[in-house]
Design a protein around this nucleic acid. Sequence first.
DNA 1: CGTTGACTCTGTAGTGGCTCCAGGGTCCAT
DNA 2: ATGGACCCTGGAGCCACTACAGAGTCAACG
Lengths: 135, 135
Amino acid sequence: MTLQPFNIGGLSRQTGVNIETIRYYEKIGLLPPPARSQGGFRQYEDRHLQRLRFIRRGRDLGFSIDSIRALLTLAERPDSPCEGADQMVLLHLDEVERKIADLTLLRAELRKMKNCCGRVVAQCQIIGSLVAPRE
Amino acid sequence: MTLQPFNIGGLSRQTGVNIETIRYYEKIGLLPPPARSQGGFRQYEDRHLQRLRFIRRGRDLGFSIDSIRALLTLAERPDSPCEGADQMVLLHLDEVERKIADLTLLRAELRKMKNCCGRVVAQCQIIGSLVAPRE
DNA sequence: CGTTGACTCTGTAGTGGCTCCAGGGTCCAT
DNA sequence: ATGGACCCTGGAGCCACTACAGAGTCAACG
Ligand SMILES: [Zn+2]
Ligand SMILES: [Zn+2]
Ligand SMILES: [Zn+2]
Ligand SMILES: [Zn+2]
C-alpha cells in the first residue's frame, strides 16, 4: 500500500490542506515531523496522509485544534471507551446550534433593516436603526 | 441634556462595552479621543456615548469594524444618499445567510455522527467518520 | 555536465477583534 | 492623610492560519 514518500506539495494536493498550514500543524505538534531528504525536504508517508485527513475532516466539522488533538489521542487507543468523543460531539453540536440561533436572529434584524426607501441618510432606516434601534 | 463628563468606566457601564475595548477603539481611530482630566483620565461626553452605542449595535449585528467605520462616515453626512448603507446591509445579509447555510450542513453532519452506540474507540462511529467519512 | 524552473526551506510578521497583564498614577470620601 | 476604587500606558497573547523574503534543492532536458 505504501508507495514512495512524497513531498509537502503532494501531501497538500492529496488533502486540500495548504502547505503553510501543514508546516504550521507540524510546528504546533499536531502532525508528527516526517523524515527529511538529504537536502532537507520533508518526506511524508501514508500515516501522515491518514492523520492529516483526519485533521482536515475535524476542521471542516468546525472542531477546534485542541478538540482534534484530543480526538486523535483517543483514536490511537482503539480499546479505550469512546465517551470522550461522544461528549465532544454533543458539546460541539450545542455550540453550532447556538450559533445558528444567533445568526437567525441577526438575519431577522437585517431583513427588517433592509427595507430602506432609498433616499438620504437623514431618513435612512438603516442608519436610523443603528442610531436608535426600533422596538 | 449633557451632564457632567464621565470616566471610561461610566461609558463602559452605559454601553456594555469593555473598558479595554473602548481604548482599543480609540487607538484604531473609531472613537475620537476625549478630553483628559488634569491627571490624565479620559473625560467622555454625550457624543462619545452616542457614537459608541452606534458602534456597539453595528458589532452586535455582525458588521466588521471597517463597515462600521464606513457607516459612521455616512451617518455624519445626513444629506448624502444612503445607497452605500443599503448595499452594505444587503452584502452582510448575504454573508449571514451563507453562514447559516454552512452551519446547517454542519449540524446535519454532527447529528449523523452523534448516534454512537457508546462502547469502544475501535467501533466508535464518531472516530470512524473522522477516519473515513461515510457516504 | 550545466541550466532551467518548479519546488521547498526557515523565520518572521500580519490578520481581526479583542483581552489580559504588570507596574504604576489619580481621585475622592472619610 | 489614607484607603480603595478607579484609571493610565505599553506590550503580549489569543485563534488558526496566511503571506512574505531570501535562500536552497531537485529532476528533467539539452
Ligand atoms: Zn466546538
Ligand atoms: Zn437608506
Ligand atoms: Zn459583513
Ligand atoms: Zn463512540
